[in-house]
Nucleic acid binder design. Structure first.
Length: 706
DNA sequence: CAGTGAGCGAGCTTCCGCTTGACTT
């Protein structure tokens, strides 16, 4: 008997189906050893020796593995083929060790071929890769467990800092400041509605029929409905312009026009009324649109957030179940690669369902753009393309089916043909014998071939233009000047923060969702309609870290770290000097900052005075969220709850429903007349149903359990 | 289901990354 050890139990089950009876497959359930939770666990005096110990929740797993190892003829370490996976193998080897025969087997996809291949070509644990993981772990521990206590001392108890979470917080704080200092600019666009002159062109219409037949896309028939044109040039000069702003995280571009006041717009409006409008140019262009790459963890979370408003946490929990039930491949991945077998299955499926035209000549193979990607797994795809979302609905329910459907469409579309669109641009000149000539433009587009849009129809929508003739005169129907303001850069949400973190190589697929949960749990940020706003505590912590540790609390720090880890893994550089080079200046800085003053958390006045001593009342952020207190604290201890109202009323006594938090920090909604009225619900949607239907609520629950 | 900020000074808070259940509704 041979013992095979992988990380995930679902993976173990799948592999069991491929291998014969002489193999026993077990899962490690992730890391089995870690640094102790309650102390630093790194001996900085003695070459940073880490005190790895068996994780509390893995003692049982290890006991069982040890038992199996005793009877095994050989042990195959088949953990994930990346830095962390290599360390898990090393830890298991160390724990089960002594006289056992270990080999290391790696594969990047769970297919029969890949696994047989891996077993035929066994290797040994890569010590250099393990060293790189040790360095990563020790560095993160030193940063986290040295900075956090400093925050307890200088700001408030229970706070935290770390290489990843502090940069995520910084992104959000910097963005808030960029929004605050953003200068809005007024600008105007001018839309001109023009119509065709039916009686005049009636005879020409016949002639145009010839061109009409040649053109692949038929134009809408001529009619007297008007078409909207945009003003684009005045006397040969373009009115559109753009401004670029440097942000902490990249660049921000806004487009606007050089018409910057109502007076200027009105003047153009009046002048345009005196002009004659003539079609001056018609051009057509075919554009190809290619499908998107199949999902990774990051893009899956982004799309689920954008399309269904799901949090990263929720998406991952739905995906976990889909994975466990065998509907999709592994859901924590940074790879866009699909197993060759799956690619051909999808091509077959598309050919059968939609015809030959819908698959490109050659299969599409995608490459990830992230240079820090470790690509230990496949992209996220359905394990069997012929499984419909109805089947998922029957087995797991509509929420799961919705996510599965999204994954299915993206994966299938990724192997389909390009969509082909024909766009038509019509230019109109507006002039007279008086000064000033204007150029107007309109664009229409027609889908010639839907291609991949057949299964993933996003951003679809034709805009058919009537058939125009060059030189044709048009009638002015209406001129509409519209006022705009340049919008400030948007606040981050679940989708955009994950996108930024991934782009900068900060965090990993298994942590994107938890990074956000952590800074939310510390009350560093709060959500406003799904977007992140830093709290006063978040601002204070961020400013403290940036002021004193900007070399760590910055995007390039992780990129540099990754370069150094690569040198350890690939060139065999020793890890201890790398950590020492980091720690020596860090320790000096820590000692200096320890002597500095406490940080004051800014408060916000609410425009009301304290009933006790008349001083202004302020909003503070405590351990459980916002509350109102006297500015003179601790000399005056007046305090009361910060009440966030909703639009709902209590079905029991008609009081207002307000937002509250449990001791554990969960949000719920209760009656403002508490404790006189004890009405409370977890979700506002429960409230709508509440009055008429306890029965319907119960029914739904029992069916969804099936 | 409904707490909060400091200090008094017990004992404790905290990192990132790899995996699931065990919890709650």
């Amino acid at each position: 008997m041979k013992l095979v050890i992988v990380e995930s139990p679902t993976k173990a089950k799948t592999i069991g189906r491929f291998l014969g009876n002489d193999y026993v497959i077990r899962a490690s359930m992730g890391h089995v050893m870690d640094l102790p939770k309650s102390k630093l666990g790194v001996d900085v005096e003695h070459d940073f020796k880490p005190e790895f110990e068996i994780s509390a929740d893995k003692k049982k797993t290890i006991t069982e593995l040890k038992k199996l190892a005793k009877d095994a003829d050989g042990i195959i370490l088949a953990t994930d083929p990346d830095r962390e996976g290599e360390a898990i193998s090393a830890h298991i080897e160390e724990l089960l060790g002594k006289g056992k025969k270990f080999v290391r087997a790696t594969f990047h996809e769970i297919t029969q071929d890949a696994i047989e291949n891996a077993l035929k070509n066994p290797g040994v644990v890569n010590k250099q890769l393990v060293d790189a993981q040790t360095a990563r772990r020790v560095l993160d521990r030193l940063v986290g467990y040295k900075l956090s206590p400093l925050l307890w001392q200088k700001v408030r108890r229970g706070l935290s800092a770390g290489r990843v979470q502090s940069v995520a917080l910084r992104l959000i704080v910097e963005r808030e400041r960029e929004i605050q200092k953003f200068n809005k600019k007024e600008y105007w666009t001018i839309t001109i509605s023009l119509s065709q002159n039916l009686s005049v062109v009636a005879s020409e219409a016949k002639q145009s029929k010839i061109t009409n037949e040649i053109a692949a896309a038929p134009a809408a028939p001529r009619n007297d409905a008007s078409t909207d044109f945009e003003l684009i040039e005045i006397n040969g000069e373009k009115i559109e312009m753009s401004e670029t702003f440097k942000l902490y995280d990249g660049e921000y571009k806004v487009s606007l026009t050089n018409i910057n006041s109502k007076e200027a717009a009105d003047k153009i409006d009046a002048d345009l009324k005196t002009k004659i409008f003539t079609v001056s140019d018609i051009s057509q262009k075919e554009t190809k649109r290619s499908p998107q790459m199949p999902y990774t963890t990051s893009t899956l979370q982004q799309d689920a957030s954008r399309r269904f408003g799901l949090s990263g946490k929720r998406t991952m929990s739905l995906a976990q179940k889909l994975y466990e039930e065998g509907f999709i491949t592994y859901h924590r991945t940074d790879s866009v690669n699909m197993a060759t077998k799956a690619v051909f299955q999808i091509r077959d499926f598309v050919k059968k369902s939609f015809g030959e035209k819908y698959i490109p000549e050659k299969p599409r193979f995608y490459k990830t753009k992230q240079k820090l990607a470790q690509e230990a797994h496949e992209a996220i795809r359905p394990t069997n393309v012929s499984v419909s979302n109805e089947k998922v609905d029957q087995n797991l329910g509509p929420q799961y089916a919705k996510l599965y459907d999204m994954i299915w469409r993206r994966a299938v579309a990724s192997q389909m043909s390009d969509a082909i669109t024909q766009s038509t641009t019509v230019l109109v000149e507006a002039k007279s014998d008086q000064p000033n000539t204007y150029l107007l433009k309109t664009t229409g587009s027609v889908l010639l071939f839907d291609g991949f849009l057949k299964v993933n129809p996003f951003g679809l929508g034709d805009r058919k233009l009537p058939q125009f003739e060059s030189g044709e005169k048009l009638n002015l129907i209406q001129i509409t000047p519209i006022q705009h303001e340049t919008p400030p850069p948007p606040r981050y949400n679940d989708a955009s923060i994950v996108s930024s973190l991934e782009e900068e190589g900060i965090g990993r697929p298994s942590t994107y969702a938890t990074i956000i949960s952590v800074i939310e749990a510390r009350l560093y940020i709060e959500r406003l309609q799904g977007r992140f706003i830093p709290t006063s505590v978040g601002m204070a912590v961020n400013d403290f870290l940036v002021k004193n540790f900007s070399d760590i609390d910055d995007i390039p720090f992780t990129a540099n770290m990754e370069d150094e880890l690569d040198a350890i893994a690939n060139d065999g550089r020793p890890w201890v000097p790398m950590i020492r080079d980091f720690y020596t200046p860090f320790e000096k800085k820590l000692a200096i900052v320890k002597k500095a003053d406490r940080v004051e958390i800014p408060t916000e006045e609410i425009g009301e005075n304290c009933p006790k001593d008349g001083a202004p009342l302020v909003i503070r952020v405590g351990r459980f969220g916002k509350f109102i207190s006297c500015k003179n604290f601790p000399n005056c201890d007046y305090k009361r709850a910060y009440i966030e109202e909703t639009n709902f009323i209590c079905p029991k006594d008609g009081g207002k429903i307000i937002v509250r938090k449990t001791k554990k920090g969960r949000t719920f909604y209760g009656c403002s007349n508490y404790p006189k009225c004890d009405f409370a619900v977890w979700k506002l949607s429960d409230l709508k149903r509440g009055a008429e239907g306890e029965k319907t609520t119960k029914k739904r629950k029992s069916t969804s359990k099936k």
